[in-house]
Nucleic acid binder design. Structure first.
Lengths: 200, 200
DNA sequence: ACCTATGGAAACGTCCCGTTTCGTTGTCGC
DNA sequence: GCGACAACGAAACGGGACGTTTCCATAGGT
């Protein structure tokens, strides 16, 4: 989907222009996909969107906001519910699915950017911690909730298993290991699901 | 127009000046401690060290090299061997020790910087992956090696447990959670050590 | 005595940030 | 109708940091 750049968008009056928002998000997605987080600059997004920087900053006050928006849009297209019947199966499926999504869409670069951004800015850390993490870990919590009801995991362990799972995937993403290492992921899933629950 | 040199290190001939190296590393450590990774700029380090930027770039071609040098120097002062007799005890001790070190020294900021840097640069990713990770995970591998001999963990699981452990700590550091959350850490350690090994 | 690598200072050109100014556009309240 | 208002794009700003280059002084190696 290419953008019209000759005739620039104009104001449509004293209200937000949906076309501008769409163009900016599309451009951000495009830059992220082409140049990665490395080449992700607000100037470049503005250039490609045929938009002014003030327009971007008006709606996304920080780079983190923009990255999060790209990630959210990407995520909306993939509503995934997983239920294989066993905790190990669920964790493995979700893990491989997330790595696959990171490989094949700008979502991975968006997450890398969000984390990198958070190391240098206090505001960015808040975005990562309060707006990115909760929805991101939601499917994991859902799976663990069901596993707890089946007795596969102690309810008190849910939090720590979620952390271990998230940490495993993050570390892989942040070190550039997003390949589908099926053996390792299944081993990880089995290990996390063989903790302290009542054995069937 | 010729200006008189102020007090400062001079060249000591056609060889590296150890005083310059020490001053630069000390300044880097100081900036990192005071301003965090956020305020860590080569210009500022040069200013405080009373050194020229070319001198810095001559010995540390990238910011990652400089960050890694600070981290290594910090690490050299804390050679820690852990052996509590049980895998859970060892992992818990190492985990809490690392978080404590990250809290109380520039090492944590150095790691945050190394990871952030690696998200934007290919060279920085190599530094992180090949020069930082191996020595950093060494104590964990040592502990897991002993645990494998005691039958507490399957040798084939060593790799994945190391990854899970590292991911757990990284995620905490990168999201600003470096407090001594003893309960969670011990729970994590217990979970990782209750995997598939032969029970004693 | 020359060669050469080092050290510090300063300045360079580039990039990007986040903000400000400006003129234009069109809607909505009056 | 009509004017206040807000959003739009373009351009420019000051600031900071990057990584590099030029310059000159220094002093060990040969």
């Amino acid at each position: 989907m290419r953008l019209e750049r000759r005739e620039g968008r104009r104001s449509i009056g004293a209200r937000r222009n949906p076309a501008a928002e769409a163009a900016i998000l599309a451009a951000a997605r495009e830059v992220l996909a082409e140049c990665g987080y490395r080449g992700f600059s607000v100037d470049e997004v503005a250039r490609r969107a045929g938009a002014g920087k003030p327009t971007i900053y008006r709606w996304w006050p920080t780079r983190s906001d923009l990255l999060l928006a790209v990630h959210s849009a990407e995520r909306a297209a993939r509503i995934e519910a997983t239920d294989t019947g066993s905790l190990a199966g669920d964790l493995s499926t979700i893990g491989r699915g997330m790595l696959a999504a990171w490989r094949s869409s700008p979502a991975g670069e968006a997450v890398r950017g969000l984390v990198a951004e958070a190391q240098a800015g206090e505001a960015a850390l808040v975005v990562l911690w309060e707006r990115f993490m909760p929805p991101w870990t939601e499917p994991v919590r859902a799976v663990l909730g069901r596993a707890a009801m089946r007795g596969e995991v102690e309810p008190a362990d849910i939090e720590v298993v979620t952390e271990l799972f998230a940490g495993f995937l993050w570390r892989r993403l942040l070190t550039g290991q997003t390949d589908d290492d099926r053996a390792a992921i299944e081993r990880m899933a089995r290990l996390l699901s063989s903790g302290r629950g009542r054995k069937p």
